[in-house]
Simulated assay, not measured.
Amino acid sequence: MTNFGSATALLLVVAAALVRVDGTVLLQQRPAGKQLAGLWEFPGGKIEPGESPEAALVRELREELGIEVNAEALSPVTFASEALAGRHLVLMLYAVRDWQGEPRALEAEALAWVTPAEMAALPMPPADVPLVATLSASLQGTHADLARP
Rank of each mutant, 00 (worst) to 15 (best):
M1E: 12
N3Q: 15
F4V: 09
F4I: 12
G5E: 11
T8C: 03
T8W: 08
L11Y: 05
L11W: 05
L12D: 05
L12V: 05
V14C: 01
A16K: 03
L18C: 00
V19R: 00
V21P: 00
V21D: 08
T24Y: 06
T24R: 15
L26Y: 12
A32I: 05
G33T: 06
K34V: 12
K34F: 12
L36Y: 10
K46Q: 12
I47W: 03
P49N: 11
P49C: 06
P49F: 00
E51Y: 07
E54M: 07
A55I: 02
L57W: 04
L57Y: 02
R59I: 10
E60A: 15
L61C: 09
L61E: 07
E63H: 13
E64W: 08
L65F: 10
L74P: 03
L74M: 09
L74F: 09
V77Q: 09
T78Q: 08
L84N: 11
A85M: 05
H88P: 02
M92E: 08
M92I: 14
L93R: 08
R97S: 14
Q100R: 14
E102N: 09
P103I: 05
A105L: 03
L106E: 07
L106A: 06
E107V: 15
A108G: 04
A108P: 01
E109W: 07
A110S: 12
A112H: 12
W113D: 00
W113T: 00
W113K: 01
A117L: 12
E118T: 05
E118Y: 06
A121S: 15
P123M: 02
P126H: 14
A133L: 09
S136K: 14
S136H: 14
L139M: 06
A144N: 10
R148S: 09
R148V: 13
